[in-house]
Every structure is written in structure tokens, then in C-alpha cells.
């Protein structure tokens, strides 16, 4: 745990499990995000990252449901909230932004109106009354000439600017928690870096805790304070960011990092280059779910699933039975 999470965390997920048609796509996940902390949730496509985010926001797809666990925002357990109560929290004390910045904005609504949306929805003010705040917010996310831009439609803005607008609309209500699901994947590299820097700069404003979802270790290195590595619906390793890069302590993490080329700017789709394919969620192996692709796997791994913390200290946890043989994984 870091300094920030030692005080009560903004978000505490405890033993969260999500099922889709009987399949556990999220299995016993626990994670904390502290005040003004950036936690990255990393893992291959389909490992359940978005399901965790949707559970927190209370908007799982109809086929999915939370089976076990608690999601504490401050001291309140969101799992126990009904839809009405969730709607009051959503977009106000916690907000979420997505990957597709351009199509995530209403094409017929002025940019300024969309930034003001949260104030209109949650605080019953008119768009006109919230206009000034919306323009301030646009300025804070680095949009030049915010007065003019606020009156434009999304089609008149570039992808990078649309992402800034989405961030502005998420942050205008000063949420305690911001979830960003692959916020930069659709953007080109220079803009990516700008957006990441922006998010880092802005979290201080409202002490916003940020949970960023990505499958890009480069993004993790850029922005995160702490990392949770996921595989097959479980968190397999968690540590502070420099720890993860300096002493990766799970075979999966080590393989992930081994696939980052030293050249920045070429780092998309890297997680896919680990040998083997992710097994279908319905047929996870017994014991450790990574064992079908793990170079260290043996019989011990097949029986009892390793869980956090199998080993390591409180700040750096890894769910693996063979920490002693880690050096064998390049």
C-alpha cells in the first residue's frame, strides 16, 4: 500500500465476482484506489477489465451480474444501491470516460452543453447557468479559445480535443473517482501522451482518484502510481509502478514486460504477442488460470489456485506458487 491508500481509500473493491451466463469473468477481485492516486488495471483483451469498471459504475450489460463482493465508494457499498441511488452517484461522485472520444459525444449537442451535462443532470441547474463553469473546465483541459469551442459541435473538433471534452465533462462535478477505460487507445501517439499528462495534472484539482484501464504497459509507465495486473478475471500481481517494472514478480507480468519493445510509439497490441492464446472463459483450467501458458507450470499449479497475497510484502503481491523460480522467465 502506498502513502495515499493508507488513509481510507476512495474506492475499495473487495472480493468482486461477476458472472455472465454462469461463467466467472471476474473472480474474487480486490483493489484500492486512494485519493489523487492513479491505479492502472492491465491485462489482455477479455480478461475482465471493463466488467470491473461497469460493476463499479453499476451499469453491467444485461447478461452480466455481480455475484459476490463489495464496492465501497468512501464508506458506502455500491453493490447494495438500487438503480435510483446509483444514478445519483453516477456522473457526480464518480465518472467514466471511454475509448471512442468522437462518437462518445452527442453529434448534435454543443460541446459546452455536453461539458455542463453533469451539472444539469445532478444539480438541476440550467445549461445557461452552468455555461461559465463549462468554459472554465474546457480551459483547464487545455482547449484553446474555450468560449468559441464551447459553441461548436463535436464534428468540428479533432479526436484529441474530443477526448479533452470528455475529460472535462467527467471532471466538472469534481468526482471522487474517475474511471478511464482505454482513454487513449484511439488516439495517435503524440496526442496520447498529451492526454495522459492532462489526466495526471488534473487529478490534483479535485483530489480525484483515477482507475485507468489499459492493455498498454507504456501507458502504465507514463501515468500510473500503482498497477494491478489481471489475467483470466483475477488480479495476479499488484505493486507500485516502479516495483512492477523493476521486480516483476509474476510469470505473466514478466512475459508482458518482455514484449515491450524499447522503441516507444510502437507499443500497441503487445499483450497479444505472449505465446499461446487466452483460453475460453468457460474452460479455465483448474488451479492457476495462467498455467496453460506459464513456463513454470507444474502439478502444484493445477490443484489449488494461488491467490493474493501468496507471497511478497503488503505493497507488492503476486499470486504464484513458484516465486522462487521466477528468474527462469526471461
Amino acid at each position: 500500500m502506498t502513502e495515499r491508500t493508507r488513509e481510507a481509500p476512495v474506492l475499495a473493491v473487495r472480493d468482486l465476482s461477476v458472472e455472465i451466463e454462469g461463467r466467472r469473468v471476474v473472480d474474487g477481485v480486490s483493489l484500492d484506489v486512494g485519493r489523487a492516486e492513479v491505479v492502472a488495471l492491465v491485462g489482455e483483451s477479455g480478461c475482465g477489465k471493463s466488467m470491473i469498471a461497469f460493476s463499479i459504475m453499476g451499469l453491467l450489460p444485461a447478461v452480466a451480474s455481480v455475484e459476490t463482493g463489495r464496492i465501497l465508494l468512501g464508506s458506502e457499498d455500491l453493490v447494495a444501491f438500487d438503480e435510483e441511488a446509483m444514478r445519483a452517484v453516477r456522473g457526480d461522485s464518480m465518472a467514466m470516460i471511454f475509448q471512442e472520444p468522437v462518437s462518445s459525444l452527442n453529434p448534435l449537442m454543443k460541446v459546452g452543453e455536453q461539458v455542463a451535462e453533469s451539472l444539469v443532470v445532478h444539480h438541476g441547474v440550467s445549461t445557461a447557468a452552468a455555461w461559465g463553469e463549462a468554459i472554465d473546465m474546457l480551459r483547464q483541459v487545455g482547449i484553446p479559445e474555450p468560449e468559441r469551442r464551447a459553441r461548436q459541435l463535436p464534428a468540428e473538433l479533432s479526436g484529441g480535443m474530443c477526448q479533452r471534452v470528455m475529460i472535462a465533462s467527467a471532471l466538472i462535478s469534481q468526482p471522487r473517482l474517475l474511471i478511464a477505460d482505454e482513454p487513449t487507445t484511439a488516439l495517435d501517439v503524440t496526442i496520447q501522451a498529451q492526454i495522459l499528462k492532462l489526466m495526471k495534472d488534473l487529478r490534483g484539482l479535485g483530489d480525484t482518484a483515477i482507475l485507468i484501464i489499459t492493455h498498454d504497459m507504456g501507458v502504465v509507465a507514463d501515468i500510473a502510481d500503482r498497477v494491478c495486473v489481471m489475467y483470466g478475471g483475477r488480479i495476479v500481481e499488484t505493486a507500485e509502478v516502479h516495483e512492477i517494472f523493476a521486480r516483476p514478480s509474476h510469470p505473466y507480468t514478466r512475459l508482458l514486460l518482455g514484449t515491450i519493445p524499447k522503441l516507444t510509439g510502437q507499443r500497441k497490441h503487445l499483450l497479444r504477442s505472449i505465446e499461446g492464446t487466452v483460453p475460453d472463459v468457460s474452460e479455465w483450467p483448474s488451479g492457476c488460470r495462467f498455467r496453460t501458458r506459464c513456463p513454470l507450470a507444474d502439478d502444484a499449479c493445477a490443484n489449488v489456485p494461488p491467490s493474493l497475497p501468496v507471497a511478497g510484502d503488503e505493497a507488492h503481491q503476486s499470486a504464484c506458487w513458484h516465486l522462487d523460480r521466477l528468474a527462469e522467465v526471461a
Binding site: F98, S104, L105, E117, V121
Partner: peptide, 11 residues
């Protein structure tokens, strides 16, 4: 996505 985002904004 923009309708989805509106739901995530609590509309």
C-alpha cells in the same frame, strides 16, 4: 457511445 456515455453521466 454517446448515449452510453449519457447513462454513465447519470442521465
Amino acid at each position: 457511445p454517446y448515449v452510453r456515455l449519457a447513462r454513465f453521466m447519470g442521465a
